[in-house]
């Protein structure tokens, strides 16, 4: 009888251990996830292929740009965030291909795709010894400004590669979360 009880208990314990291991097993997505290098806006954040330092973050209601000799105004329902960052290659020519605005609640806003290619918009090609200033443009609702983190990576899917996660400084906001410093029109050809 004792032996029987012991066997059942051992089986139950094994089931609990197996369930625990199954539910705590890291998912494939986590196993191959990019490796973040954390920093703030005062830091130069160093990843495997490039260094990045945020120079300036400007919020605007509209963007003005000259494309193919034609002036274009880009509107949005939310805000434009223009992030000017200095990027430098470490030991070989590389590109900074993707940037994401990670909101305070975890929403991921990818860089906008509403512009034709410009050399200062991603993918930005950088070479050793020749740092460059790149512009990263995002469309966001006002509530996503406070407590955001900027993520810079080499490519959109960069498994197991390092990426720069830079926490943004606080900016003074009005009641609905719009930064007080928001400008009406930002001209990409005449950076502030």
């Amino acid at each position: 009888m004792m032996r029987w009880v012991f066997n059942v208990a051992a089986l139950g314990a094994a089931a609990v251990v197996c369930y625990g291991m199954q539910s705590s097993k890291p998912r494939y997505k986590n196993l191959i996830a990019p490796i973040p290098v954390h920093g703030s806006m005062v830091d130069k954040v160093e990843t495997r292929l490039f260094d990045v330092h945020i120079g300036k973050v400007v919020f605007a209601r509209e963007l003005k740009v000259t494309e193919f000799g034609k002036q274009k105004t880009l509107t949005t329902d939310g805000l434009w965030a223009v992030v000017a960052a200095d990027v430098a290659a470490r030991d070989r020519t590389t590109r900074v291909g993707a940037a994401t605005w990670l909101g305070p609640t975890g929403l991921r806003f990818h860089q906008t795709e509403r512009f034709s290619s410009r050399s200062d918009l991603p993918p930005i090609s950088v070479s050793p010894g020749l740092p460059q200033r790149g512009l990263f443009l995002f469309e966001l609702p006002p509530g996503e400004v406070e407590g955001a983190t900027l993520v810079f990576s080499h490519t959109v899917f960069s498994a197991l590669d390092s990426q720069a996660n830079i926490a943004l400084d606080r900016v003074p906001l009005d009641s609905d979360g719009t930064p007080l410093s928001v400008v009406d029109v930002y001209d990409l050809d005449r950076p502030i």
């Binding site: 030991d91 020519t93 090609s125 070479s127």
Partner: peptide, 14 residues
């Protein structure tokens, strides 16, 4: 085709 210097930095064509 690339360039490489003595410290190992390398450049691709631009």
């Amino acid at each position: 085709i690339g360039l490489v210097d003595e410290s190992g930095r390398s450049w691709l064509p631009s």
